[in-house]
């Protein structure tokens, strides 16, 4: 990011950037940039909602703390992306999170998938963390200084998520017979939803140097995943990819329930502040 941009937005990459700061920005993102911010924000929001369920239910207390950390990081990223997207349409992060209907969400099917057992959650976490790391480590060079700044903060946090899920994949795959069986099953259930992460959409062509082309992340993602699977003595699941559609507002059957729970209280009291 250039010096001039940095001073114009009062943001420098790597500095703690709060959603409250983004809300005060004078610049408004173009509609396409805001749509792209929704993609990333919705992924993080729905994942945080899923991970939040584990807090008080994890296999050990240390893991309640770790999963809560990851969920908190994701909710932080969601708040920043949604706040920025909302600047384009005079909406707040909460307007977007609580008062959009299901087809208006842009999350991928992967983050909507049920937690299942701990192995299934870890399989989903591994895929998400590797993908988000590849994505954010490129988005730091975005032509949009706000997206770059959000990514600069997120990439450091997601680096820890990568490590967390990698360590657990190794423990589960190489631990006991039962844990290995569950890890293999978890990966298999997760695998159909991987392809959607790397599907390009026309929106990306409009973004130019602002966004990261999903298909460009596939090769580095595959290499990173293969390295983990090799060490864990696991094979890529031999299951076909599923047709996605989240970026177009066509979601899995799970999202309706997730939103029903997420939005219930806010929608009972429209216009109230909390």
């Amino acid at each position: 990011m250039s010096e001039a941009n940095a001073s114009a937005t009062r943001i420098t990459p790597g500095n703690a950037l709060r959603p409250e700061d983004i809300a005060l920005l004078e610049t408004r993102p173009a509609d396409a940039v805001a749509q792209y911010a929704l993609w990333l924000g919705d992924d993080a929001l729905i994942l945080a909602q899923r991970l939040g369920w584990w807090i008080s239910r994890a296999p050990e207390l240390e893991e309640d703390v770790a999963l809560a950390n990851i969920a908190l990081d994701q909710i932080g990223h969601a708040r920043s992306f949604l706040t920025y997207a909302g600047r384009a349409w005079d909406k707040t992060e909460d307007d977007l999170a609580y008062f959009r209907r299901e087809p208006e969400f842009r999350s991928v099917h992967l983050v909507e998938q049920p937690n299942g057992d701990f192995a299934r959650t870890i399989a989903r976490q591994l895929v998400v963390a590797l993908y988000q790391w590849e994505l954010y480590s490129r988005l730091v060079d975005s032509a949009d200084p706000t997206l770059a700044a959000i990514a600069a903060k997120a990439v450091k946090e997601v680096d820890y998520h990568r490590d967390h899920s990698t360590q657990w994949v190794l423990r589960l795959a190489l631990g006991t017979e039962e844990s290995r069986r569950r890890m293999i099953a978890g990966l298999k259930l997760t695998w159909p939803y991987v392809e959607e992460l790397f599907t390009d959409h026309p929106l990306i062509d409009e973004l130019g140097e602002t966004g990261v082309r999903p298909s460009s992340l596939r090769a580095p993602f595959d290499a990173a995943l293969q390295a983990v699977l090799d060490e864990a003595e696991l094979e890529l699941p031999a299951v076909p990819g599923a047709v996605g559609g989240g970026r177009l507002g066509r979601h899995s059957e799970h999202l309706g329930y997730i939103l029903a729970e997420l939005q219930v209280l806010a929608r009972e009291h429209p216009g109230a502040s909390w």
Partner: peptide
């Protein structure tokens, strides 16, 4: 934790998650 998934704003959700995490 019973209210984490239903917290009425994203900020409150984050604060509540952090609180329950502190308790662990």
């Amino acid at each position: 934790a019973n209210w984490i998934t239903r917290a009425p704003s994203l900020k409150r959700k984050a604060v509540l998650m952090a609180k329950v995490q502190d308790e662990a």
